[in-house]
């Protein structure tokens, strides 16, 4: 089977993010970047499925030349080929989904796996838009299932299982208060949650092989997608700094303050 996975370039969560004083964005100097952690989980899941069912993993990223770093990372993990949508400048979730739709129509994968959201702007919309526009089934927030309530499914079950006939995929989703299991007809769109798997390191032989794996370049105009954002960010601001705590002399004062000031009881 053919699986398309995404590899968005995002700010390294270890970096210290600072908002520009004028609120137009974040300070880019000195920032490190890496693959969106949710996308890395998607790459890992794609590789595991292909190891079981055969086929190939195609990784796609949208951005300037610098996203080659994330594409090469996915290739070094084991992805077979890469698609680079060469685009710089602002892009909203509809722009991303529109570009991915064209890549999907071109690559014709059986399954698309994306991170449920990217850790930079936390939109959590691209997978859903993509499934809708393709007219495919979607299963969001695929997560690792430790156990199920029903007796015959008590044992650990993989969160993402492709049916023996390669026509369906069963996905365990993380939902409020528990897990839900859904089955989709293939082709389908799946988005990954944090606990789905533990991504592998890129291996040294993988890194050396990645060098010679192909990266195909596409441009939005060539795909016939208008990526003019319908959404603009008007202002960014840092969350208010946490105030220092206080010490209370006794329990009575604590209860009083929780009631009157914090208003939590």
């Amino acid at each position: 089977m053919k699986i398309l996975v995404t590899a968005k370039r995002v700010e390294d969560p270890e970096s210290k993010i600072k908002v520009k004083p004028d609120g137009t964005g974040i300070v880019q100097e000195g920032l490190k970047y890496k693959i969106n952690p949710f996308d890395e989980i998607a790459v890992e899941e794609g590789l595991r499925l292909v190891a079981k069912h055969g086929g190939e993993v195609v990784v796609v990223s949208i951005g300037g030349k610098e996203v080659h770093e994330q594409l090469r990372h996915a290739l070094a993990m084991g992805a077979h080929k890469a698609v680079w949508v060469n685009h710089t400048g602002p892009l909203d979730q509809m722009g991303v989904a529109g570009l991915l739709q064209k890549v999907v129509e071109k690559e014709k994968p059986d399954l698309v796996i994306l991170g449920k959201q990217s850790i930079d702007d936390d939109q959590n919309q691209v997978g859903q838009y993509l499934a809708e526009w393709l007219g495919w089934g979607q299963a969001t927030f695929a997560s690792k299932a430790e156990s199920f309530d029903s007796e015959n499914e008590k044992n650990k079950v993989p969160a993402l299982v492709v049916g023996a006939d390669n026509k369906t995929v069963r996905v365990v989703r993380e939902v409020d208060g528990g897990l839900a299991t859904v089955e989709c007809q293939l082709p389908a769109v799946v988005t990954t949650d944090l606990r789905l798997n533990q991504p592998r390191y890129a291996s040294l032989p993988g890194i050396m092989k990645a060098k010679s794996k192909p990266i195909e370049e596409l441009i939005p105009a060539g795909l016939g997608v208008d990526v003019t954002p319908k959404l603009t960010v008007t202002k960014m601001s840092a969350p208010p700094a946490r105030k220092a705590g206080i010490k209370v002399p006794d329990v009575a004062t604590l209860v009083e303050k929780l009631k009157t000031e914090a208003k939590v009881i």
Partner: peptide
């Protein structure tokens, strides 16, 4: 992107990122 200082190529820097991850974890 990590600079290679004219010594290291892209694949060496990819290896560096992997080693960094191992060391950090």
């Amino acid at each position: 992107m990590l600079s290679g200082y004219g010594v290291y190529q892209e694949e060496h820097q990819a290896f560096r990122r992997m080693v960094r991850e191992v060391i950090a974890k």
